[in-house]
């Protein structure tokens, strides 16, 4: 294992190491078809599982805002998407979020947080701190998961609410939950 591999392995999140299977099963239970994503170490396990799954399709993006438009398009065609990103990606999405609110598209994004708890990289802090404020300012409902036991129930409730009443919901997996990145 070279040093890069070692680093990546250590970055793999605790929450998804333990929860990636239940999370994938939950997404499938809700008939989520697409997982558009910009990779994050915190989502690595779920992305990897989805690559092997026959039903769910991962969709790699160049920037997170593509996932907003993609999710809207898939819903126009009757299929559900869930956008996976890191908190730094929220800033890339802001204007595109207007599409969701204007058209009242159902929308769920699962966001792994950086820049909020035990962060070494100070460049992550401004966007991490602004993430919930930006989402709320654009009209999204924001749920935060700090404890492992809450993750599945909160995602379950969010998927149910979004796709049964046209809501736009962001679920933040806190950095305390994920565990800090070791350097």
């Amino acid at each position: 294992m070279n040093s890069q591999d070692f680093k990546l392995k250590k970055e793999k999140s605790e929450v998804e190491n333990n929860m990636e299977n239940p999370l994938l099963n939950l997404l499938k239970k809700h008939n989520v078809k697409f997982l558009p994503y910009v990779p994050d170490a915190g989502h690595a396990g779920l992305i990897s599982l989805s690559e092997q799954d026959e039903y769910i399709q991962p969709i790699v993006l160049t920037t997170e805002e593509e996932g907003i438009a993609f999710s809207s398009g898939s819903w126009l065609g009757g299929e559900k998407s869930v956008l996976l990103m890191q908190s730094s990606g929220v800033g890339n999405c802001i204007n595109m979020l207007s599409m969701l609110v204007n058209c009242n598209f159902p929308f769920v994004t699962l966001i792994t947080m950086r820049g909020e708890f035990g962060e070494l990289n100070s460049w992550q802090i401004p966007m991490g701190q602004a993430t919930p404020k930006c989402l709320k300012t654009m009209g999204l409902v924001v749920h935060r998961v700090d404890q492992k036991k809450d993750a599945i129930p909160v995602v379950d409730a969010s998927l149910y609410a979004a796709f049964s009443s046209d809501q736009q919901i962001a679920v933040l997996f806190s950095q305390k939950l994920i565990g800090r990145k070791e350097w």
Partner: peptide, 25 residues
């Protein structure tokens, strides 16, 4: 027809989402 009045830069990805959701359309 689905007209975008905003969301600049989003038309192609909206099309991709639709195209993958409705592969026979």
């Amino acid at each position: 027809n689905f007209y975008l009045w905003g969301a600049m830069g989003g038309a192609a990805m909206t099309g991709l989402g639709l195209a993958l959701a409705k592969p026979d359309t």
